[in-house]
Amino acid sequence: MSQFLKNTAAGFLQDYGGAVLIHLLLILIWQLVADYGGLPPYMLPSPTEMLATLSETGNRWAQNAVVTMIEIVGGFALAVVIGVALALVFSWSRTALLLFMPLLVSLNMVPKVALGPLIIVWFGYGLITNMMIAFAICFFPVVITTAKGLSEIEPELLYLARTVRASRWQIFRKIQFPGALPYIFSGMKVSAVLAVAGAVVGEFIGSDKGLGYLMLQVQVNLDTASMFMAVLLITLIGVALYGAVALLEWLLVNRGGQA
């Protein structure tokens, strides 16, 4: 096992060592430019100044980060559940597909961010509203990719299933859904990134909590270091969500001989 870990670590270093180095290099250059470049700190704070803002209790980092995280994850989870369910309905009913898929495509053309103020009218300020905006923005990729994945079943396999009395639900559970998983996950990865943007935009428009709201608060004081820190935390939440999706994909798809 430890040998396995060693090999994996060695392989990782070989494949990605360069990329990690470039990331670190960029942070180093940033630090040097900020320290010696002659720019005022409100224009470009250094990474260390940025980290120092974590001790500013007035920013209520943890509370704000948790709110933003709940909005992102909530909107994302809702989009995945409703998106997959809707795609399933489309795969079962051609009529539903023909009637409602074009509507979905039209609705997707509406910039969801522009709906923000309307959603605030409907749901009021706060967490639920921002979750809805995140949901609206990341729902569509899940529906599209899942519907595509569910429809990829070979007709002959369907014949075979029908000669042994397979029910719709059995076909979905044993053939369609596992077959669609790679599609669903690619949709989820796109959605994970969009959900972050949706939640933060919601917080910009109208909110009294969350990292997006915090950014507007500290902007007034030209506390650029805290703004950067907020962006970093938002990014980390996004990375964590994306990582969780990728891990789940690996567990469910790649490990079992697929991919």
Partner: peptide
């Protein structure tokens, strides 16, 4: 109940092992 089918493509489910693939009609 009494028909088995084989097509030009093997149509195996790639996420199932060989044995699990063979068992599919029995599960249905």
């Amino acid at each position: 109940r009494h028909i088995g089918m084989v097509f030009q493509q093997a149509l195996l489910l790639k996420w199932r092992t060989v044995t699990e693939n063979i068992l599919l009609p029995a599960e249905f």
